[in-house]
Simulated assay, not measured.
Amino acid sequence: MKEENQDTTHFGYKTVESNQKESLVADVFHSVAAKYDIMNDFMSFGIHRLWKRQTIACSGVRKGHRVLDLAGGTGDLTAKFSQLVGDTGQVILGDINDSMLKVGRDKLRDLGLVNNIEYVQMNAQALPFPDNSIDVITIAFGLRNVTDKDEAIRSMYRVLKPGGRLLILEFSKTDNEALSKLYDFYSFNILPTMGKLVANDSESYRYLAESIRMHPDQETLKGMMETAGFEQASYQNFTGGIVALHRGFKY
């Protein structure tokens, strides 16, 4: 969410120059890439796998589709999409961070998934694809790290085919006061400690906790999708609203 001054934006709770955020976020993910999958399981107690499974179930991906797994990191969604699109389809694992892409590529190749996956380093704000060329776009736990989220959503809309859909899986806001207090304590006390112990990096995980708090709430993000042109925009809360899955269609 940008501030009124378009020259500045948020990096966690800090205000930074907009042109600095990309490199600051890059440093975070260069640091955590090697331990990213392990930390995901620790941080969410494995529940992130259920959130991603539900995203895949809502994607409508089928044989022959061209799918963009944007900010796809280590390729959890790409692995399943690769099986769904088959030999006649294609999955593009796209991420702005080359360290994350390398980890994802190595993992997927170890799983024997090589024939229908392409790896592309890209910025979500300027997707390197023609208009109307992608059937489905997913972005899981990546939008909050984008400098200009509105521009990124417009870019996703542009490259989707008519009839295509966008799914955004992201941390969001819970209305449950007790859950919110517990989540805050976990995020700012337990999570950085886990980051230090597992990944030898507490500051990156403190940033990730802060970036979640600065991300637009469910209704705001739904409105951003509608402004970009998406129709039938909706969202589904998971785990009391700690995470939400937004969905929209291009007609």
Rank of each mutant, 00 (worst) to 15 (best):
32 V>Y: 10
178 A>K: 11
240 G>I: 13
245 L>F: 03
7 D>P: 03
164 G>H: 03
35 K>T: 14
20 Q>A: 14
22 E>C: 07
20 Q>K: 12
122 M>G: 01
112 G>A: 08
26 A>F: 06
129 F>G: 04
235 Y>H: 08
74 T>H: 02
192 P>H: 11
235 Y>D: 01
240 G>T: 11
153 I>A: 02
31 S>Q: 15
79 A>E: 13
25 V>M: 05
121 Q>F: 01
121 Q>N: 09
14 K>N: 13
37 D>V: 05
13 Y>E: 14
94 G>T: 00
115 N>R: 09
215 H>R: 05
35 K>Q: 15
97 N>E: 07
243 V>T: 14
111 L>S: 14
233 A>I: 03
98 D>I: 08
117 I>Y: 15
241 G>T: 05
21 K>F: 03
47 I>L: 14
29 F>H: 04
50 L>T: 12
248 G>N: 02
235 Y>L: 03
135 D>G: 09
99 S>T: 07
192 P>F: 06
50 L>P: 06
199 A>R: 12
175 D>K: 13
84 L>V: 09
86 G>L: 04
56 I>F: 04
68 L>F: 00
62 R>F: 14
69 D>S: 00
123 N>H: 10
196 K>I: 05
170 E>N: 04
160 L>Q: 00
69 D>H: 01
163 G>C: 08
245 L>Q: 01
170 E>K: 02
211 S>F: 14
35 K>Y: 07
104 G>W: 00
214 M>W: 04
78 T>Y: 03
65 H>R: 10
162 P>Q: 07
147 T>Q: 11
186 Y>D: 09
76 D>R: 06
122 M>H: 02
174 T>A: 09
1 M>W: 01
150 D>M: 06
150 D>K: 09
227 T>F: 07
33 A>Q: 05
60 G>E: 12
209 A>M: 15
107 K>N: 08
227 T>A: 14
114 V>D: 07
181 K>T: 09
154 R>S: 06
232 Q>D: 12
127 L>P: 00
3 E>I: 03
127 L>M: 07
213 R>P: 10
155 S>I: 02
81 F>Q: 06
146 V>M: 00
145 N>D: 13
48 H>K: 12
237 N>F: 03
227 T>L: 11
45 F>T: 13
11 F>S: 04
108 L>A: 08
212 I>P: 10
88 T>I: 07
149 K>V: 01
211 S>Y: 12
94 G>D: 03
194 M>G: 13
212 I>Q: 13
159 V>P: 04
217 D>P: 02
45 F>G: 12
1 M>R: 02
172 S>V: 06
221 L>Q: 01
238 F>E: 11
82 S>R: 06
71 A>Q: 00
171 F>A: 09
114 V>Q: 12
157 Y>M: 01
23 S>V: 11
91 V>N: 08
70 L>A: 02
129 F>M: 12
221 L>A: 02
9 T>H: 03
205 Y>D: 14
105 R>W: 03
114 V>M: 09
242 I>E: 09
208 L>A: 15
207 Y>N: 15
157 Y>I: 02
40 N>L: 12
15 T>K: 15
17 E>Y: 11
215 H>N: 15
193 T>C: 06
64 G>V: 05
215 H>P: 05
10 H>G: 01
228 A>M: 08
48 H>R: 10
185 F>C: 08
120 V>K: 07
54 Q>V: 08
224 M>P: 04
57 A>D: 08
234 S>V: 08
